[in-house]
Design a protein around this nucleic acid. Sequence first.
DNA 1: ATAACGAAAGGACATATGTCCCAAAGAATC
DNA 2: GATTCTTTGGGACATATGTCCTTTCGTTAT
Lengths: 228, 228
Amino acid sequence: MINQELITYLQMYNIQHIFNSHMQPYISIQHFNEGELICKQGEAIQHLYVLVKGKVKVYTMSEEGKTLILSFKTPLELLGDIEFVRDTDTVNTVEAVSSVTLLCVPYPYVRKYGSEDPLFLQFLLKIITEKFYVKSNSLRFNLLYPVEVRLASYLLSVSFDESHALVKGHHSANSLRDTANLIGTSYRHVNRILQHFCEQGLVERQPGGIVVRDREGLQKMSNNNIYE
Amino acid sequence: MINQELITYLQMYNIQHIFNSHMQPYISIQHFNEGELICKQGEAIQHLYVLVKGKVKVYTMSEEGKTLILSFKTPLELLGDIEFVRDTDTVNTVEAVSSVTLLCVPYPYVRKYGSEDPLFLQFLLKIITEKFYVKSNSLRFNLLYPVEVRLASYLLSVSFDESHALVKGHHSANSLRDTANLIGTSYRHVNRILQHFCEQGLVERQPGGIVVRDREGLQKMSNNNIYE
DNA sequence: ATAACGAAAGGACATATGTCCCAAAGAATC
DNA sequence: GATTCTTTGGGACATATGTCCTTTCGTTAT
């Protein structure tokens, strides 16, 4: 008998037929708290994850140790799909930004029951193709716009709802130093831009973090948010 | 009866079983000359192309009119795969860099005979996933390295064989002005960097274009070539 | 050949960003 | 509470890159 919660999620996103009846008995549900790592670059990965609730942050690390934010993801999204197809270790690190719920399917069962299933393959194709498209835009965005715009964009992404308009300092990945790495610039420069933002009344420094004061203004500065 | 040339190509890349026997009668062969456009951003596209010979350049154009090089591609590669899956107009412009041969399958037949074929879908998945991976690296590369490195990389890519070590000026897309757009910088800056390259004896200016003098040196400067 | 023109290279300066370091503000230790 | 240590913001300067304009040079028209 399959878990009722699972059925609810499958129906919610209308993916009962994608994860076919053979696969469903092997799907488990996992929860992660804000700040927890769901998978870590370079480590082996054994499961295909389906993000059904919450928000995650995807980032990568270069040889020199610089980190670079790649995207924020919300449902419906797959994690570990690229690794599944390429049969490699985890390419990027994925961290929960809020409380997160994932459906979790071990690769062997994905392979066994999915590899020959056109519906499932088409689903993978759709998702990965969309990822490719988003990354194309991201590439363009990053090469075309200055840090100012990217930072505004980032601030909006992490202050994901009204009650979280504070970029907290105690998060491993939310300290300003990490923020800098994440948007591909230096800590110094982030400070500089934040100073400008403060002068313009867009944000405000507070002990423990940054408070977004003028959401509209930030939005305007980052016309289209790349990280979403 | 299927064209012998087609059979040769299918066997060369061992893709007879991917483009199954139902699809094969509808595959045609197309040739493009250096400089010709294979597809153009924003226009409708009707065919899935398989690059089996030659080299193409993929680039995109932003709203402001800036062009940005995305990649160079050599066989075996697909064109129009993303558009096929997303069912959209052409996303990027593709231009032949050398004499190019493509296999060409109309979308309706791809859809009819491919959408239910796990082998074909797996092939698409592999290719698109690889594209995604390459683009991920490209993003990282572009954000991490200065124009100098990208230009070196570009020069190596366009001087694709010994006899073409000259970046010709008469190519629509090879003038220095276009080169600048393609690597995401200004014409002025390309000139500046080229000046440095000249001083270092890496390249030499000649009426009509740039000659690569020290291929090794350029290679060293662009550790790993993103455009290949 | 000369004048007019347009493309290509480069000078001068502005802006964006990186690096290094220091000072102020907390936090920890004694 | 004084001292030390660590974190954080910011100053000063270097480098990368963009913008604008001038100079140079080859081409075309006369």
